[in-house]
Design a protein around this nucleic acid. Structure first.
Lengths: 110, 110
DNA sequence: TGCACGTATGTCTGATCTGACATACACTCT
DNA sequence: AGAGTGTATGTCAGATCAGACATACGTGCA
């Protein structure tokens, strides 16, 4: 396990920084945030599609309305963990979630 | 622990063989765990494809080898949050991650 | 205007997660 | 056997998160 292997991957186009540098930090951070936003937006759409209020969903989850609100707004205090669990609890399948993730990112403006 | 959904899955014939050890879990918990397992396995494959050791990855992440080992084995103490962040840090795209999620679940038992 | 309903924001406390370290296990060489 | 390399497991202090509650905001309607 040496640099000979690392070189192989660098050429493979995996955008691995050279000389001990890492991936572009803001780049992977951006992907993570987009993922979170996508899950949050997806959760909201899913709930609305089910015709439920945040309060109703909260009761189902054994949580509170405020937490659901924070989930849907991708608040800093909610993890993708919670978003995933919530989507599943509302009946989404892994494939449904995957669809959310692979969708091209859209700003929530307007 | 929602059981209103459990029965649906039990009859859905969820291809026995793929996780018989989850039979006592509710539908949504199962999906969540499968998701976690899929991400963990994906992370390992991704790392191996890059030709990196757990230690090298840990250094990149500013984490420790033990934590990476736990990630790849889907340890209880690692969140999907961490798995997602790690995949992204290794260069995976949202679409790559989505692919991992939508794949049919396979038990890692031989 | 006031009220009802749904949603958003701020903060507290207990729970969970994270990185670190030590250490054990598994293999492969010599 | 012993050394080197890679991976797994157990534990802990500090960091982060979850649910709860209060409260504010926004909209529609009487």
């Amino acid at each position: 396990m040496r640099k000979d292997k690392r070189r192989r991957l660098e050429r493979a186009g995996w955008s691995v920084g050279d000389a001990g540098d890492f991936l572009n930090l803001s780049d992977d951070e951006r992907r993570f945030i987009e993922t979170k936003l996508a899950l949050a937006a997806g959760l909201r759409r899913w709930r609305e599609h089910l015709g439920l209020t945040q309060t109703e969903v909260a009761q189902r989850f054994g949580s509170s309305q405020s937490r659901v609100a924070k989930m849907e707004s991708a608040d800093q205090t909610v993890s993708t963990d919670l978003l995933l669990r919530s989507l599943f609890r509302l009946g989404a399948s892994r494939r449904d979630v995957a669809r959310l993730l692979s969708q091209k990112f859209r700003s929530r403006a307007a």
